[in-house]
Amino acid sequence: MDDNTGPSRRPTLGDRRKERIDALATAGTVVDEPGKSLLRSAWERLRRDPVFLVGAAITLVFVVLAIISPWIAPWDVTANPLIDKVRPQSNPVPGPEPGHLLGADDRGRDLFSRLLVGSRQTLVVGVFATLLGLLGGITLGALAGAIGGFVDTVVMRIVDVMLSFPALLLAFTIASLAREPSQWTLIIAIATTQVPIFARLLRGSMLAQRSSDHVLAARSLGVRPRAIVFRHMLPNAMGPVIVQATLSLATAIIEAAALSFLGLGNPDQRQPEWGQMLGLAQRYISEAPHLAFYPAGCIIVVALGFTLMGESLREALDPKSRR
């Protein structure tokens, strides 16, 4: 080893060095203003994202209309003012006329009013089904992800079994098990199909958190296990679940419509619902396609609104796009 030449002489920095370093706290500058959390910076990004704005606008219009629909609907949805014009042979579905913007259905009920009020049931089913699914999914996923081991294996096998059924078939089975169909059987059926998705997602991201450095750091600090789960793992694992929930609202609405279409929705046929309207429309699909077109269009636009919101939310919360 003859690399023992020793360091060659190098000029040392000037005399001013010491004072300059003292003046400039060695760590560099820290801007003196309150910190900005990740959520806040994500929100600031979202506010400028046109995709999010379009999605949010659609959703907002839909929600507001659903809430105020009973008051702004020009006709009572159960009344049949145009029943006189219905001719089962020649004119089963009366067309538009003054006072009836979109005409009426085969029972002479004002189509526009039914479309407006129909949004309520769709929204209620979609939101409650997703919330319920979220609750179940978070419980199962958090249990599996936080405890691990045997609990994880059992929970995940159950979830796998649930996932192996096609969602609609599962919902169909559950809805038909109920003694009599109602709005709530619909909600529970759809929620059940959402549970495994949320559970899997949360469990996966909890596991990722569990092996992350900051959780190890909390462990090494001596933080209580409960606090580690609730303060560190769960909040950091929720991002993808929230995004999925937004996207799930769209599928829940579509599934709700599909189940109603199949006659598993609210048994009270007088109360409008988009899927149910779509189901009634199929008899007249050749003579009066508009009867199917309007509820279908509503379902698509609303689902699109939620999807756009979910996608832009995903982007905003993506750690890779953080600066």
Binding site: S37, L38, D213, H214, A217, S220, G222, R231, P235
Partner: peptide
Amino acid sequence: RHARKRFQMVFQDPMSSLDPRQT
């Protein structure tokens, strides 16, 4: 957990070892 008070760790990656949601 109580004993950990007396021995601590400093990690390699300062970003991933700090919880991003906490001040």
